[in-house]
Simulated scan of single mutants.
Amino acid sequence: MSLETVLPQAVQPETEEMILARQRKAVGRRRRNTWLLRLAIVVAWLGSWELAATLWIDPFFYSKPSRIWDRLAGWFTTGTDFGSIWYQLWVTVEEAVFGFVLGALAGVVLGVLLGRSQYLADVLAPFIKAANAVPRIVLASLFVIWFGLGLASKVATVVVLVFFAVFFNAFTGAREVDRNLIDNARILGAGRLQVLRAIVLPSATSWILSSLHTAFGFALIGAVVGEYAGSKAGIGFLIANSQGTFDSAGIYAAMIIITVVALVAEWGIGHLENRLLRWRPSMSRTTDTAVV
Rank of each mutant, 00 (worst) to 15 (best):
V144E: 11
Q243I: 14
A174C: 07
T15G: 09
V27R: 07
L72R: 06
G47Y: 01
R24C: 01
A240Q: 09
Q118L: 15
T34R: 14
A165C: 00
Y228L: 13
V177Y: 05
Y119M: 14
L139H: 12
V27L: 03
V292G: 05
T157M: 15
V224M: 08
V158L: 12
V97H: 01
S48E: 01
A198M: 03
I239R: 08
S84K: 06
M255E: 09
R186W: 00
K154I: 10
L272P: 00
R175W: 09
G173A: 08
L181G: 03
A262I: 08
A254Q: 13
D178W: 09
Y62A: 05
V27Q: 02
L120I: 14
F246G: 04
L276W: 14
G74S: 06
G148L: 08
D58A: 06
R136S: 15
E94M: 10
G74E: 07
T259P: 02
K129L: 15
N169F: 07
D178C: 13
N33H: 11
A73E: 12
Q9Y: 10
I85H: 03
G79L: 10
F98M: 11
Y119W: 15
R280A: 12
T286H: 13
L110W: 04
G148W: 04
A53S: 12
F127Q: 11
L3T: 08
K64P: 02
A198W: 06
Q243E: 10
V97C: 04
W75P: 02
V6Y: 06
L181N: 10
L120V: 14
W56G: 00
N180Q: 14
W146V: 13
T77G: 05
A185Q: 01
T245D: 07
W45I: 15
L238S: 03
V91H: 01
